[in-house]
Design a protein around this nucleic acid. Structure first.
Lengths: 337, 337
DNA sequence: TTGTATGCGTTATCAT
DNA sequence: ATGATAACGCATACAA
């Protein structure tokens, strides 16, 4: 491997000069600069990142710790983060934890000295405490339950979005609105459920727990939950799934059962992943600008990294918008059939 | 930041001993080991990765350079890579190049000293040469045109897959089979086109360039291309898109145009991204086990990293399989209408 | 403007 | 079994 010494020797200068050339220091004549550049080019030299990090105490890297890498949600999130990071000259270190404590610890370990800050999305409750205690660098939390001056966090307007969607369905005339819930100990899932219940209560429609089916954010669970809900009597006229993947699974189950959407059953999701609009019928959903969420998180983190101590931590909520497509409609009148 | 020195001082031992404890060296008594461990724990110490890399000349990181991060293909690929890497104790460094020479150079620069090897997928021709000349570590190429003893490469059976699919359509009775092509200078796209033409020729069906519409792998381009093909007379009875995203765009265009799939037009794709089976109708496609591709690439790279020089470079082709769903069918007889 | 020398945090070699 | 110390490759304060 060619090091700074090799270049220095070949160019007949000191290592300091080579270093200066590479860091665009003004304290070097155009002449020597050109000479060093040429030699470096010829030798195929480029500085060793680890060594530089050690010396400068900067890595120009940011870590991204995700619970999973499956599906379009994470892909969009990473895209947003990478875009912003790249613009600021930072690179990405990716790790998935599957929400296991040990994996989180391992990731945090290997991040130390490799990144200047970390974006972590870990829906498991308590994970943010573990991260806080272990991380020796700024951290931005995504969709975590963490609140307070100790954390920098970004959250989606989960409850609000759910409420909006349910209100929309109620406006359409629906009364028996079922929900496919997300994972039990997931914060986003809990908030969406809260919004669902609140909207129902607000409209004077009593809660009916038999209309709340359990899911886990996977399409398979949405499929199963929809079949379960089909057995309820009287049957619900609308299904609100806590995320798009489950709504898509439900769509699949309904098609197989010969239940027409939206005529016999309205279906709505949450997230607006790219494929939602390509469903048949196109899926109504609560849009979260996922890439923007990633960008915002990156901005916050970079800000924290740059201003080290004088950075004020806070929780920030990113808005959502209703996207009404064809998967929801007015319910058919029961007495008309 | 708490360093190894702090721990050594607090534990009343030398830094060497602390280092030994952390590296599970046998040359340290259980007693001191326990004491050091306790102190390290109390102080919240964990070794600085950059420093360690500098000393050991190992980073335990692998770089992943992708042309883009958009869509399910890359997300699945990354998932496969991460899974394998994590199992071997390696972490991921992600970068997207958008196929710009400068971006590739920048990524390669920042990888230096941070990774032990690199997986690069850069459909642009010539990119592999640039990578070869700049990289100071083992590289595994994904879907590149590179051949020869100089490169370690993994490729998808593009031409074969395309041929298989076209043969299937011909078997169904289709004769006017259109293709939505991928980006002009993309290697995968070129191979898929080659397979398409070969299958047609093999069946004694002359090539008809008016049935080859240009696309660029995005759903929007598939949408436009399908509309273009709808104008051809006589109209094709089947469309083979060079990837699923374009097939999905085509499906959208056909629905808007009131053309029934598969009755009036068969549609097939390539890749079998997760959402393909959720289309309406479910999309027939050529399945590439994307995650497995990522895993295989990682295995190859890790192998190269481990055995440094004595590693024999070679090109390996991963197989594809036909997945026939409902989006293709026998064509309606022209004379029957 | 350039060179010398020290330190960054860790591992590894050589003593002890 | 443990300690002192020289690398590792680079940046930078200080000298010249």
């Amino acid at each position: 491997m060619v090091t700074i010494k090799d270049v220095a020797r070949a160019a007949g200068v000191s290592v300091a000069t080579v270093s200066r050339v590479h860091n665009d220091s003004a304290l070097v004549t155009a002449d020597t600069r050109g000479r060093v550049r040429a030699v470096a080019e010829r030798l195929g030299y480029s500085p060793h990142a680890a060594a530089r990090s050690l010396s400068t105490r900067k890595t120009n890297g940011i870590g991204v710790l995700l619970p999973d890498l499956h599906g379009e949600f994470y892909s969009e999130l990473i895209r947003g983060i990478d875009q912003r990071a790249q613009r600021h000259g930072f690179h990405l270190l990716l790790a998935s934890s599957h929400n296991e404590k040990a994996a989180i610890a391992a990731a945090l370990q290997s991040m130390r000295g490799r990144v200047d800050g970390l974006i972590v999305m870990s829906p498991a409750p308590g994970a943010h405490l573990q991260v806080r205690d272990m991380a020796s660098f700024p951290v931005v939390l995504l969709n975590s339950a963490a609140v307070g001056a100790e954390f920098d966090a970004l959250a989606v307007a989960n409850a609000h979005g759910a409420t909006q969607m349910i209100a929309h369905l109620i406006g359409l005339g629906h009364r028996r609105i079922a929900m496919i819930k997300g994972p039990v100990r997931n914060h986003d899932a809990a908030e969406r459920l809260r919004g669902y219940r609140a909207a129902l209560k607000e409209a004077g429609i009593g809660a009916d727990e038999s209309l709340e089916a359990q899911g886990d954010f996977t399409d398979a669970s949405g499929y199963a939950a929809a079949n379960e809900l089909l057995g309820r009597t009287p049957r619900p006229t609308a299904i609100f799934a806590a995320n798009d993947a489950m709504a898509i699974g439900a769509l699949s189950a309904l098609r197989e059962a010969g239940v027409r959407v939206p005529q016999e059953m309205a279906v709505t999701g949450f997230d607006d992943i790219p494929m939602a609009r390509y469903m048949h019928p196109p899926l109504s959903t609560v849009r979260v600008d996922i890439a923007a969420l990633g960008e915002r998180a990156t901005d916050r983190l970079l800000e924290a990294v740059a201003s080290r101590r004088k950075h004020r931590k806070r929780r920030e909520v990113v808005p959502v918008t209703l996207v009404i497509r064809e998967s929801c409609n007015s319910p058919v009148r029961r007495d008309a059939s």
